[in-house]
Design a protein around this nucleic acid. Structure first.
Lengths: 217, 217
DNA sequence: TGTTTCCTGACAGTTAACTGAAAAGGCTGT
DNA sequence: ACAGCCTTTTCAGTTAACTGTCAGGAAACA
């Protein structure tokens, strides 16, 4: 399994790398966001291990950009204990799981395989939703009663966000952030419009409206 | 903010209590697990400060039981310098943060507010209520015998308020304040109506009437 | 029993969401 | 550069859902 570790605490990074190498994984390491960006462009990693607090830029932007550009590479974020808000922000930005430092290396292994299994892993890369809709997050594919359908990039960005948190109601504001750079003051009803488009493609039942708040799958 | 401090080193406990009282917090103290259990049953604390190494039983079991019974009360654990395994175990058992003894009292304050500010926190613990109802406060989700149900924003505002204080009877006046901006002179029986609507969705047993006073979950 | 308190169905005003259509922006190939 | 095609954004009219109120009935209490 190809793993990219983005972490600037070198002690920790080395420990993690050694542990994973010993377990037979292929680990690349970067201690900066810009390097990580380049490495992501060049290689297809199976999992991204990402520290959000890096000196040269917000790790979270790396993740957000990645998701916005359509990548579904699984990502586990590493946060310090007191950065609970980071953790939340990270999950909202599209992380799959998180680990709190200091973490146990065995726990890391466990989560890695859990996350990896969820994707490339066989049993079901497809998440089934109501209305005969199946989603392959990693492959960016949607089957609708078994027939493949395509989404445009914005449609996908929005839908991806919701599918990652089934059952949870996401505010329009949160969903907007999947569409635009952080803090983009958007005045229009873009989210509504995209929900409408998605519903036309996916069927009415898939996305539920929670009036006054947002949407959920 | 109501804080329960579970700690058997009395010197330390007193110092903590004095510091927090001076900051205007309400602090109860217990030096044993059994007492703490009783106190937790009787009162709804906003934060639990828990020493894991207590003479009369494992503090960690207290925490585990608490989480198992669905409580989401934020918990900060206090551990001695060398008990790293405790720390990990504690975090895994559902603690939100930890402090290493000896700790700075100001740091304690900071962490307390950080933890209390949380609650939009992930991953979202489901709180179980009577009648097969499970609530995810942060995700704004309700499962009713496993089936997801939606509440309107007013319904949620009211219910959220109650779920955050399970067992406590809340007056209609208090509940009204969850519905409207401060001091809104409301003449009608809106709260009753919303309780009725909630009961239709959640089942009759979930919200109990306390005649002449208000309601409780 | 009489009195108080609570419950709940119905209704109309209000607000939020939906959606069709058109304009604006991008990308591709010629 | 231009044309053609597709995506994104905006706008506005329509539709659907929520809200607060009231009134009659049911329960609790004394």
């Amino acid at each position: 399994m190809r793993i990219l570790l983005v972490e600037d605490e070198l002690m920790l990074a080395d420990a993690v790398r050694d542990h994973l190498l010993a377990a037979g994984e292929a680990v690349d390491h970067s201690d900066s966001v810009v390097d990580a960006e380049i490495m992501l462009r060049g290689t297809n990693y199976d999992v991204l291990l990402l520290d959000l607090n890096l000196p040269d830029g917000k790790g979270i932007d790396l993740l957000r950009d990645l998701r916005r550009s359509g990548s579904a590479t699984p990502c586990i974020i590493l946060t310090a204990q007191d950065q609970i808000s980071d953790r939340i922000e990270g999950l909202n930005a599209g992380a799959d799981d998180y680990l709190v430092k200091p973490f146990d290396l065995n726990e890391l292994s466990a989560r890695l395989s859990a996350v990896a299994r969820r994707y490339s892993g066989n049993p079901n890369p497809f998440i089934s939703l109501d209305g005969g809709v199946e989603v392959d997050l990693a492959g960016r594919a949607i089957l609708i009663d078994g027939v493949q359908t395509d989404l445009t990039s914005r449609e996908w960005a929005l839908f991806d966000q919701m599918v990652r948190r089934p059952g949870q109601t996401l505010s329009k504001r949160q969903l907007e952030e999947a569409l635009y750079e952080f803090g983009a003051e958007i005045e229009s009803n873009t989210v509504e419009v995209y929900v409408s488009r998605l519903r036309r493609k996916l069927g009415k039942e898939v996305i539920k409206t929670v009036r006054g708040v947002g949407y959920r799958v």
